[in-house]
């Protein structure tokens, strides 16, 4: 399998300083927030790569950089070998752009309330000068709605149906890659099941590749082939699904799994994890997880761990794998 998406040393820094005058009067330095820091990953064609992490871990920022909604500060995203931000041949860029689509978290905010569903779905094709005869109807049926729904407006649909419309719109330009940013976290469980099943079917039928962003470990375990765990903008662990869930290597991944509520955990007493996600503007030195880490040694606060292979996973930790051996 060839890699459809190549992410190399991706870094994104946001300037979150106060306005210039406040900085001068209050003598404040510029505040820089490193939302994504040196992330490298590969997504093979026809696979599902999931990014998990808590809020502020940079998972949505990576998703936006992959589709091209944000430009990287450093590093590169290559889709089918083309770097969207550096490539100068507009024809090539155009060709790749229509291969990428995105599904957003909130189906109430991502559909234009004044547009008919037909216009919403066919826009990605019409905008590039294509014809969209019968396209909306065909796609609506493909995602489990009726062809007559094309004449309706978004407010006539429930949350789950709206997310189906978003999926139909994403499919309109016949993309190869769909970036799904928390596609089901605004939906109820029974509707979430419908949408996840639909996404699985479409992937198999159309040969899609997903970059699946979620904070919900059960959903990720259900959907993903390979999972990357993010903490404070850094990839701390990356492993195939079975390896990650049966044998997590990084102490942060282990903590996440232990803390997640379990359906069969009746009366389970959880030893609550210590601390909270630190301030990303002034992250801890060395490994960002060391102040909360039960395994931390002196080296962790001084030196940033590089990604290395441990028992079939890529792990960024000095200690992982050593306590077993």
């Amino acid at each position: 399998m060839s890699a459809l998406v190549q992410v190399r040393s991706l870094t994104r820094i946001f300037d979150v300083s106060k306005p210039w005058l406040n900085r001068v009067v209050e003598r404040l330095p510029k505040a820089m927030l490193k939302a994504v820091s040196d992330v490298s990953l590969e997504i093979p064609e026809r696979s599902v790569y999931a990014l998990v992490g808590e809020s502020g871990s940079g998972k949505s920022t990576i998703g936006k950089m992959v589709v091209g909604l944000l430009s990287p500060t450093e590093g590169a995203v290559e889709i089918a070998g083309i770097d969207l931000h550096r490539e100068t041949d507009t024809a090539k860029v155009d060709g790749v752009r229509s291969d990428i689509q995105m599904i957003f978290q909130d189906p109430y905010a991502s559909l234009n309330p004044r547009w008919k569903v037909r216009d919403i779905i066919s826009e990605p094709v019409v905008a590039r000068g294509g014809t969209a005869d019968g396209l909306a109807e065909r796609l609506l049926e493909q995602v489990g709605l009726a062809a007559v729904d094309a004449e309706k407006f978004p407010h006539e649909f429930s949350g789950g149906q709206r997310q189906r419309i978003c999926i139909a719109r994403a499919l309109a330009s016949e993309p190869k890659l769909i970036v799904c940013d928390e596609p089901t976290s605004a939906l109820d469980v029974s509707v979430q099941a419908q949408v996840l099943n639909l996404m699985t079917d479409l992937k198999d039928d159309l040969g899609l590749t997903y970059l699946f962003i979620s904070h919900d470990l059960t959903v990720v375990q259900h959907m993903a082939d390979v999972i990357g765990v993010l903490y404070l903008g850094r990839l701390v662990e990356e492993a195939p699904r079975e390896a990650l869930f049966s044998n997590p290597q990084h102490p942060y991944t282990q903590m996440l799994f232990a803390a997640a509520p379990k359906l069969d955990g009746f009366g389970r007493e959880v030893e609550p994890p210590k601390g909270e996600i630190p301030d990303p503007i002034n992250p801890p030195s060395g490994c960002a997880y060391h102040p909360r880490c039960p395994l931390a040694v002196a080296r962790c606060s001084a030196e940033r761990p590089e990604m290395r292979d441990v028992a079939g996973s890529r792990v960024a930790c000095h200690v992982a794998g050593e306590q077993a051996g």
């Binding site: 109820d188 469980v189 509707v191 099941a193 419908q194 996840l196 699985t200 059960t218 959903v219 259900h222």
Partner: peptide
Amino acid sequence: GLMGSTPLASKGLARLNQIPGSM
């Protein structure tokens, strides 16, 4: 139905048992 549609570790990648329609 609610329990069937919750993704569960033990079921792996099997299709979720969905409840048709919505509330």
